[in-house]
Amino acid sequence: MTENEFSPFLVTLTIGSAYIQPKKPPTLDALLLGALRLVFPYSEDVSALIPLQKTDGVFHGSCMICDPLFSGGSVKFFQSINNERKEQTINGDWLDTHIYKGLDIDVSKLRKGDSGRGAFSTKMDDYTLYHRGSFWKVGFFGCGDLSQVKSLLHKLPGIGRKAARGYGAIFDVDVDPVDTDYSLIRDGKPMRPIPENLWMRMGGSPLPLRMARAEIHIGNPDEHEVLCVAPTGEHLSW
């Protein structure tokens, strides 16, 4: 299917477990990229296979849409710290009594890059859980190949952080055609991070700018942030 044959749609995901918010508000293209990495685990870059229309490098996939979420407790996970990192790359907040490796470790050794027990130490992270009851829905507007989008989303275990551990579990996937493409702009407001130049060419009104990732690139996403208009908050309202 060519871009001329792409059509606008609304994705509705039924979520069946608590959700852990990612560092950046999730977009549809990011979810599809995650699904493609599961399908092609040994391919370095699968972004060209994302079945969405693209304008000036920006995929037609909105940020997540949902009703207000309620916080419901927290969950803790252990995360590895590679002691081969240079000292200045280790966050000072990690060097406290919450760092473990089965037993308490000598922080002075960690500062020297040596925990005394192999190449890795661990820190404990605390994540806030969000939910709207037993089953709740989130949405994404997009423009692309409906059947491929639905097929890929069925391969994802969930959305948000720690999805592989059962959080943000996807219970059902619906992809329905709509008359208008709202993946980039709706009612004069951005539906995802959009670079300033593209926003102005689309006829958008002047809005506050902030650094955000508008395009998908290999590597650290923070290194590819540009000045964008973007939705405020962690998600959009229906």
Score class of each variant (00 low, 15 high):
119 A>E: 05
20 I>L: 13
11 V>Y: 06
223 E>W: 10
160 G>R: 07
126 D>Y: 08
148 Q>H: 08
234 E>A: 14
158 G>V: 06
78 F>G: 14
24 K>P: 00
7 S>W: 04
27 T>P: 05
13 L>W: 02
31 L>H: 07
48 A>V: 02
118 G>F: 08
171 F>G: 03
8 P>K: 12
139 G>L: 01
220 N>H: 03
234 E>L: 11
60 H>W: 01
75 V>I: 15
91 N>Y: 04
233 G>F: 05
218 I>R: 12
223 E>H: 13
13 L>G: 08
112 K>A: 15
131 H>P: 00
24 K>C: 06
13 L>M: 02
110 L>C: 11
47 S>Y: 00
104 D>G: 03
231 P>K: 12
215 E>N: 13
111 R>A: 09
77 F>R: 15
127 Y>A: 09
22 P>H: 07
213 R>E: 15
78 F>L: 14
183 S>G: 01
112 K>I: 05
55 T>M: 08
194 I>T: 06
170 I>L: 11
142 G>L: 03
232 T>C: 07
87 E>Y: 01
217 H>P: 01
127 Y>W: 11
93 D>E: 12
66 C>E: 04
177 P>G: 04
108 S>Q: 07
167 Y>P: 06
25 P>W: 07
184 L>F: 05
113 G>E: 04
44 E>Y: 04
213 R>S: 15
193 P>V: 00
153 L>M: 05
208 P>K: 10
41 P>E: 12
49 L>D: 11
33 L>V: 10
212 A>H: 10
152 L>T: 05
1 M>A: 12
67 D>P: 05
186 R>C: 02
72 G>S: 14
72 G>C: 14
103 L>H: 08
43 S>V: 10
46 V>A: 07
10 L>A: 15
111 R>L: 08
23 K>V: 12
77 F>C: 05
222 D>L: 10
115 S>W: 02
136 W>I: 08
176 D>S: 15
219 G>Q: 01
47 S>Q: 04
139 G>K: 06
69 L>F: 09
12 T>C: 09
162 K>C: 08
154 H>P: 00
208 P>I: 03
27 T>C: 14
90 I>Q: 04
221 P>V: 02
55 T>Y: 01
163 A>S: 15
74 S>M: 10
23 K>F: 05
95 L>T: 01
140 F>R: 05
192 R>Q: 13
238 W>K: 04
137 K>D: 10
132 R>V: 02
137 K>R: 13
220 N>G: 01
76 K>W: 11
17 S>W: 07
49 L>Q: 12
58 V>H: 03
123 K>F: 09
21 Q>K: 14
73 G>P: 02
128 T>P: 00
204 G>V: 02
120 F>V: 12
73 G>K: 04
206 P>A: 11
40 F>S: 02
96 D>A: 12
218 I>T: 11
155 K>D: 06
136 W>H: 03
105 I>M: 10
204 G>S: 04
130 Y>F: 15
54 K>A: 11
